[in-house]
Nucleic acid binder design. Structure first.
Lengths: 211, 211
DNA sequence: TGGTGTGAATCGATTCACAGCC
DNA sequence: GGCTGTGAATCGATTCACACCA
């Protein structure tokens, strides 16, 4: 299985390669891809080696083929449906941002506890009551959820999601979720990330210095 | 200098300790803190060792003292002002979220290019034109910026921020920023994180399994 | 010559394991 | 007995360095 870090970089490479493709660039060397991805040539070559993609010393890597190859690794051929819970500013921002961005990942349902919001369409995505969550998740064959609710509701919702058979949670709530071990949780803890930024800005850690 | 990972965990510990404090819990053992932080006892003890905080075998760590000690490591005593660029749904969500949350980190200015938004107050934070950015950043002594603009504007704004002498950027734009090496950049790449969640949800990586 | 693919070396972070203490 | 503090061992990720190729 690929490591967390490698999967993250592959996702980034794919996005940068799509940009190159739109500029009619058809081949790229590891040092070129590394430069735009803020990585190193050796890292790029290692990552591509791990997914068994090969280039040629003469022309480097073929952009189209590499995109297709990464698609083959990262995407489910049949696509994956996603739900989002919590339709505040953050939830709306996320729906707007993802609408139409990744063809194989579609946000197909939104949930909120506010009765005012039930039935609303946001970028074509319908809002349901949290009470309907488990049945809608089953109906729509959803296995991944974006959790964008306040901290004090996160664990309650997470428990329901586990009950509904969810396999992955992208968690924006600043709370370490307790879930069964078969569920993958990716935390986005904005407070911590801001505190880290403040700490390193103040203590002069640069993107390059090692100490 | 503390590592990135350690700083992140200290920020999390502090938040969890504040919760314990509000529950009138005054001492905590490394295995207890580890359990609520989803970490390990050895990791907790190592992190606290790195900031030279000591506990006692009999009672564990004193919650109040540890919070104060982490404050001393992470916070600037005089506080740090923060600006945010880009007042869409995401920008508003972030301002609302941080308003009053960390006393030593205050969002004191917002910037947007939309003339409609200039002058608005959002949770007490005034919106300025991007044209005024450099001078306002100097006036308000801001060294940290949250970047929440669309991908195609991010590099342009980042260049201006570097020019303004910013030392840290929390970057929500899905673009690897090119900045001078004295600037610390923390990326929050939601697309990549969602793709990672989808990949591991599909391939059955659990929070515990190692393979 | 200047790139790829990759075993080996290195580096950093985590975990083990145990001495010392209450 | 069960905890802390920490040197040593381990593990995982990155980087080096070089054989091989066009």
């Amino acid at each position: 299985m690929l490591s967390d870090k490698t999967v993250g970089r592959l996702s980034l490479y794919r996005r940068l390669l799509a940009k190159l493709q739109s500029q009619k660039i058809h081949h790229v060397f590891s040092h070129e891809l590394a430069a735009i991805a803020r990585s190193t040539p050796a890292q790029v070559r290692r990552d591509l080696m791990l997914i068994a993609f090969t280039g040629s010393p003469a022309k480097g890597y073929n952009v189209e083929n590499l995109i297709d190859h990464i698609d083959g690794v990262l995407d489910a051929p049949e696509g994956q449906n996603i739900a989002i819970v919590g339709i505040g500013n953050l939830g709306r921002a996320i729906i707007a941002y993802f609408s139409g961005r990744r063809p194989k990942l579609t946000i197909t349902a939104a949930f909120d506890k506010d009765p005012e919001k039930i039935g609303n369409l946001i970028h074509g995505c319908r809002t349901y009551s949290i009470d309907q969550m488990i049945s809608v998740i089953h109906e729509k064959n959803i296995h991944i959820v974006i959790l964008a609710v306040p901290a004090d509701e996160a664990q309650f919702v997470a428990a329901k999601l586990v009950e509904a058979g969810i396999k992955g949670i992208l968690n924006f709530a600043p709370v370490p979720l307790r879930v069964t071990p078969d569920v993958f949780v990716e935390d986005i803890d904005v407070t911590t990330l801001l505190e880290k930024t403040a700490y390193f800005a103040r203590n002069g850690k640069t993107s390059f210095s090692k100490e």
